[in-house]
């Protein structure tokens, strides 16, 4: 069976090379038959990769330990469902998944491009095939999932037990959908630039693909945070770990793109910048895969031990060189014909927003690669810890929050003093009142007061926009409030979907602020029957219990939580010790409410039955996950195809446009 897998991947590699060459020749010599053949080759690459994936999947589910990959990532005691996640649990499998997802995106992008801009088809085939070739080269040479063992072991090593969790099962594929998704807009933009006949550099066509990739990346980050929170047992959800940063950087750049592309669409400005963001987002997605897959992060020496890192770096350099070369070639045609008309306008707010996003991305990049650079230059590894990231990102994040409220209400071209007063008085007053209220309630953290006041302000601006739109709709006879809201959102899905996404981000902001500023924690060693006060909770320890199962000894601390005299029920914090290895996992005791989370981790125990438990009260964490749900709703609404072209057409006088109007 391994032969069939190897054959499929090798065949896919040959076909990807063929697709690239046929597409280039087809475009160069105007041979539609060659382009059609190249497109068929792309479909066959997908088919053969799918076949290879089926071979690997079947080996994983059959626990065929003759496959080196299966022996390393599956074991008899592992629950069957997790054999599926073993597919992407290791490097070889995850690279195959990368290639497979890329083929899916290539087919989807080609389908849409051939309907909307058929002349871009050869370019999209060429770029997608070139990227495919690299990943196929990896899985056929240095990282083959089909290596076989001459003497198969009786049992496999299995995955790291920390990865055996439902959140970890969906986190990597979601993240990969985002990472790989950056290739589709990149391919469209490169094809448009090389073709030269698409005036905006293809960014408008690329927008939808970027939005989808951005959404997947967002959810990948949320799922990863949730996994970190419930599985790692350290009490938090974000640690500025390089692997997290690897996904955060393309997220920041693609968010910047989604804003600047609107300026390109409405005002034909920022064309060069927007194209650069697409290239950068793609580059960072490859860089992120390189960071997590090359071993460069643990040490520069482990990086040099495997050729994979060098290949990745080579490919990344080559791709960026080619992409920036193409952008430089078309630089003048992308130049905007007009400029900003006023400092106080929607486009300047977007420009400012872009500068902040890219500054954050650059700071995160610097902080992430600093240990590698310092080790390469001085031989000593200097790590940049979370305080660096917190100090740089938090103030910039607050600025972004302010812009999130201001930007959408500013008029295009030029905002008048009267419109500023009309739009910002009520939400601004609301934000100030909220801040004063928090101060009066005894909140003494200035950063948090500012963050919540800004959240209040932004929520106010969004509410105002909806209220105005609803009023207008009702004035036009759209009946009740529900009917008016439905008509409003359906009439301009991108605009109101965007507001809903902003609302989701606000919830995440509020959750992050609350939990990082107002959290409390306490570590206590308890005898059965002892109770401890944590925040407004009293937690009683009722004793330890031990069970065995799935190759692990599970020690559980039984806890019961109270607020005053009210019994909130029992909680269980446990730790699993895997037999025959040093692996341990934690199962945290968690009681979530919209106000706060009571979080307990079993840190240690004695033979006498005493337990050391780490308790945390994390305020508002639930709002982070709720933010993810709201963000999903907003993105789905924004992605649904509009019935008519939304928004203000270029050339409409500023005052003729009513905010919230259809």
């Amino acid at each position: 069976m391994a032969d069939l897998g190897r054959f499929s991947l090798f065949g896919a590699l040959v076909l990807a090379c063929y697709a690239l060459i046929a597409a280039v020749l087809g475009a160069r010599f105007r041979r539609p038959d060659l382009v059609a053949s190249a497109r068929r080759a792309v479909s066959m690459v997908a088919l053969l990769e799918g076949l290879a994936a089926c071979v690997l999947m079947s080996a994983l589910f059959r626990r065929d330990y003759a496959f080196a990959y299966v022996a390393a990532h599956v074991r008899d005691a592992q629950a069957g469902w997790y054999n599926l996640t073993s597919f992407w649990g290791g490097m070889e499998g995850s690279l195959l998944l990368w290639a497979l997802i890329l083929s899916g995106y290539s087919l989807a992008a080609l389908r849409s491009v051939s309907q909307e801009r058929p002349r871009l088809v050869p370019g999209v085939v060429a770029v997608c095939s070139a990227v495919s070739m690299f990943f196929l080269l990896m899985v056929t040479t240095v990282a083959s999932p089909f290596e076989t063992l001459p003497f198969p072991p009786a049992d496999g090593r299995g995955m790291n037990p920390l990865l055996l969790n439902p959140w970890m099962a969906i986190h990597p594929p979601t993240l990969y959908l985002g990472f790989v998704g950056m290739t589709a807009p990149f391919a469209v933009v490169m094809a448009a630039l090389v073709d030269g006949a698409v005036e905006d550099g293809g960014v408008l066509l690329a927008r939808r693909w970027m939005l989808w990739a951005w959404y997947c990346l967002s959810m990948g980050l949320v799922f990863g945070a949730k996994w970190s929170y419930v599985v790692l047992g350290w009490g938090g959800y974000w640690a500025w770990d390089p692997v997290e940063n690897a996904a955060f950087m393309p997220w920041l750049v693609s968010t910047a793109f989604l804003h600047s592309v609107m300026v390109q669409e409405r005002r034909a400005l920022l064309g060069q910048w927007t194209v650069l963001l697409v290239v950068l987002a793609f580059g960072l997605s490859i860089f992120g895969t390189f960071l997590t897959r090359s071993g460069v992060l643990s040490s520069i020496h482990s990086f040099t031990q495997s050729p994979l890192g060098a290949y990745f770096l080579g490919f990344l350099s080559l791709a960026m060189l080619a992409a920036f070369g193409v952008v430089a070639w078309r630089w003048e045609t992308l130049r905007s014909r007009s400029g900003l008309e006023a400092a106080l306008s929607r486009e300047s707010a977007f420009l400012f927003n872009n500068v902040i996003f890219v500054t954050i991305a650059f700071s995160v990049f610097l902080g992430t690669v600093f240990p590698v650079i310092s080790e390469a230059l001085t031989g000593r590894r200097v790590n940049v810890g979370p305080p660096f990231f917190d100090h740089v990102v938090a103030p910039l994040g607050l600025l972004l929050l302010l812009l999130m409220g201001v930007g959408p209400l500013l008029a295009w071209r030029r905002a008048s003093a009267a419109s500023l007063k009309r739009d910002f008085l009520a939400p601004g007053a609301g934000g100030v009142l909220l801040g004063l209220g928090l101060l009066a309630a005894g909140v003494r953290a200035p950063g948090a007061v500012l963050a919540f006041a800004l959240c209040g302000f932004v929520a106010g601006t969004i509410a105002l926009e909806f209220a105005r739109g609803i009023r207008l709709r009702r004035a036009h006879g759209d009946g009740g409030v529900v009917a008016a809201v439905t008509a409003l959102v359906a009439g301009n899905r991108r605009r109101y979907g965007g507001y809903i996404v902003h609302l989701g981000i606000l919830l995440v902001f509020a959750g992050v602020t609350g939990s990082s500023v107002f959290g409390t924690q306490r570590v206590a060693t308890l005898r059965p029957g002892d109770a401890v006060q944590v925040g407004h909770y009293r937690v009683r320890f009722d004793g330890l219990s031990e069970t065995t199962g799935r190759g692990a000894l599970v020690v559980t601390a039984r806890l019961r939580a109270f607020v005053g005299d009210r019994d909130l029920g029992s909680l269980q914090a446990s730790r699993s010790l895997f037999l025959g290895s040093t692996d341990t996992t934690t199962d945290v005791a968690l009681r979530s409410t919209p106000l706060d989370d009571l979080y307990a981790v079993l840190a240690g125990w004695t033979r006498d039955g005493d337990a050391t438990v780490r308790f945390l009260v994390n305020p508002l964490v639930m709002w982070i996950w709720a933010g993810g749900v709201v963000l999903t709703a907003g993105t789905l609404i924004a992605m649904l195809p509009a019935r008519r072209r939304a928004g203000v057409p270029v050339g409409v006088p500023v005052e003729a446009w009513t905010p919230g109007g259809p």
């Binding site: 069976m1 032969d3 069939l4 065949g11 038959d33 059609a36 068929r40 080759a41 066959m44 053969l48």
Partner: peptide, 30 residues
């Protein structure tokens, strides 16, 4: 057996991918 399967797959894939090139000129996709 496996070699036979692979050969059949290779032949089928190649035939399908190259089919547009073998079509008579006037029937080729535009």
């Amino acid at each position: 057996m496996m070699v036979g399967v692979m050969l059949v797959i290779a032949a089928a894939v190649a035939a399908w991918v190259l089919a547009p090139l073998r079509a008579p000129k006037e029937a080729r996709p535009r």
